[in-house]
Write a protein that binds this DNA or RNA. Structure first.
Length: 150
DNA sequence: GTTCTGACA
DNA sequence: TGTCAGTA
């Protein structure tokens, strides 16, 4: 199971947002977008010289995050740095999820919900952490005896 | 009318 | 970063 399906990533990369839309949606000026691009903070595709810049959805998210930090009072340079830090953290979180939820397909679906294998404990590999999810109830984390496949 | 680019402040 | 000029 992929938490973030490839089709989403592809769609976000294939999106072709004109600079004016980027500015309008993110609440920044077109001048700022151009300047940030020139500084290398964001990237765009330009079919030909002097033609309209096209941005994908990731660029839009980046601009919105930078804008958020600017509004909090950071300088542009600091805002970009904060955005990069956030991006790195999110990358780690995504990696954690992808690694830890690998067992999700092998999970036995019980009557009212599902169990997700979150992998072995770091300090006791004879046990695995299992999340029990039932509709309308808080998620329960329990320990189960590790049963290695083979 | 819109966008790009360079230049000035 | 805003704004203006000259283009495409």
């Amino acid at each position: 199971m992929r938490i973030f399906p490839k089709v989403f990533k592809t769609a976000m990369e294939k999106a072709q947002l004109p600079l004016s839309e980027m500015a309008r949606v993110a609440g920044v000026s077109a001048r700022q977008i151009r300047y940030w691009e020139k500084k290398g903070y964001i990237t765009s595709h330009q079919a030909q010289k002097n033609q309209n810049h096209k941005f994908n959805f990731f660029s839009l998210l980046k601009v919105m995050e930078i804008k958020e930090f600017l509004d909090e009072g950071y300088t542009l340079q600091a805002a970009v740095e904060k955005q990069r830090e956030r991006q790195n953290i999110l990358r780690s979180v995504r990696r954690l999820i992808n690694e830890r939820l690998l067992g999700v397909e092998e999970v036995a679906a019980c009557q009212e919900g599902v169990e997700i294998n979150l992998g072995p404990l770091d300090n006791d590999e004879t046990k695995v952490v299992v999340a029990q999810i039932k509709a309308g109830q808080p998620v329960k984390l329990i320990l189960k005896k590790h049963q290695p496949i083979d």
